[in-house]
């Protein structure tokens, strides 16, 4: 009986402390960022923590999900989106600090194959696939899927290819299908292809085939602007960019 009581006491104290921590952290810096930036952004954040001593909380997710949460009043200070459209929706709602939106990064769209594979011409994909499928993000919703669809349309093969596309809810899931060998090919970002050991890049889409790939960054209006703007500036600086470039991102395409 005494044990039970002491356990309950411990649990109550722990719950109280978590609650207090939750309330206190409202003053910290919170960044909502697209899931595809996780590996690089984690490294940048670690650097910034040691440099400044400030704490950072990073919340990763799909750009659509994060944007909806910000529109619903989530306590974000910064938003790094992989999707220009959703950033525009957030901006139109008046949730951004005016003039804070900039393009932080770019990326390269590639075709990956399972295992080691010789380079291919993306226009040949309808023939190369046979009865198999091509993994892509949702072609009407996930940016990598939208860019890929645009590129195939520009190449004139989308009509043949469309029935063979297995769409996934995010681009990393498309990559996983290729890595597991369930689909022989997939369309992903170069930055994604570099983190998976079981795939090889077999084609790179010319940047002119699709709208520019861009990762817009903006400060959310409700934040304490000084700290958020400080971190935004650090993200645009050379130290942060080095991490991103190392993982396959590119500098932002000229607007």
């Amino acid at each position: 009986m005494r044990n039970v009581l002491s356990i309950m006491q411990t649990v109550a104290v722990w719950l109280g402390m978590s609650l207090a921590a939750g309330l206190a952290s409202a003053a910290e810096l919170t960044v909502f960022a697209a899931a595809s930036t996780k590996t690089a952004l984690d490294r940048v954040a670690q650097d910034w923590r040691t440099l400044t001593g400030h704490d950072l909380r990073l919340s990763y997710g799909g750009s659509a999900t994060l944007a909806r949460q910000i529109l619903a009043g989530a306590p974000a200070d910064l938003f790094l989106s992989a999707n220009q459209t959703w950033m525009d929706v957030v901006e139109d709602s008046g949730a951004l600090v005016p003039g804070s939106k900039t393009s932080l990064l770019g990326n390269t769209l590639v075709v990956v194959a399972h295992g080691d594979h010789a380079p291919i011409d993306p226009s040949d994909l309808p023939n190369l696939l046979g009865n198999d499928r091509l993994a892509m993000g949702l072609v009407n919703a996930v940016p990598a899927g939208q860019y890929g669809k645009a590129a195939f349309e520009a190449l004139g093969v989308w009509r043949d290819l469309a029935p063979q596309v297995a769409q996934t809810d995010n681009v990393r899931a498309a990559l996983a299908l290729v890595a597991a060998g369930e689909t022989p090919f997939g369309v992903v970002y170069l930055s994604d292809a570099q983190v998976s050991p079981n795939v090889s890049v077999v084609a790179t889409f010319d940047a002119t085939l699709h709208p520019p790939i861009t990762y817009p960054l903006a400060v959310i209006a409700q934040a304490d602007p000084t700290l958020a703007q400080e971190f935004a500036a650090y993200l645009r600086g050379p130290d942060a960019l080095a991490h991103f470039l190392e993982l396959g991102f590119t500098p932002p395409a000229p607007q």
Binding site: G62, A64, R68, L138, A141, A166, Q167
Partner: peptide, 20 residues
């Protein structure tokens, strides 16, 4: 995955619509 007409079930479709 999410293939319209083949594997795009009702919840998958709802999810896809909510991404846009």
């Amino acid at each position: 995955a999410n293939i319209p007409g083949a594997t795009q079930t009702l919840p998958s479709a709802v999810y896809a619509f909510l991404q846009v």
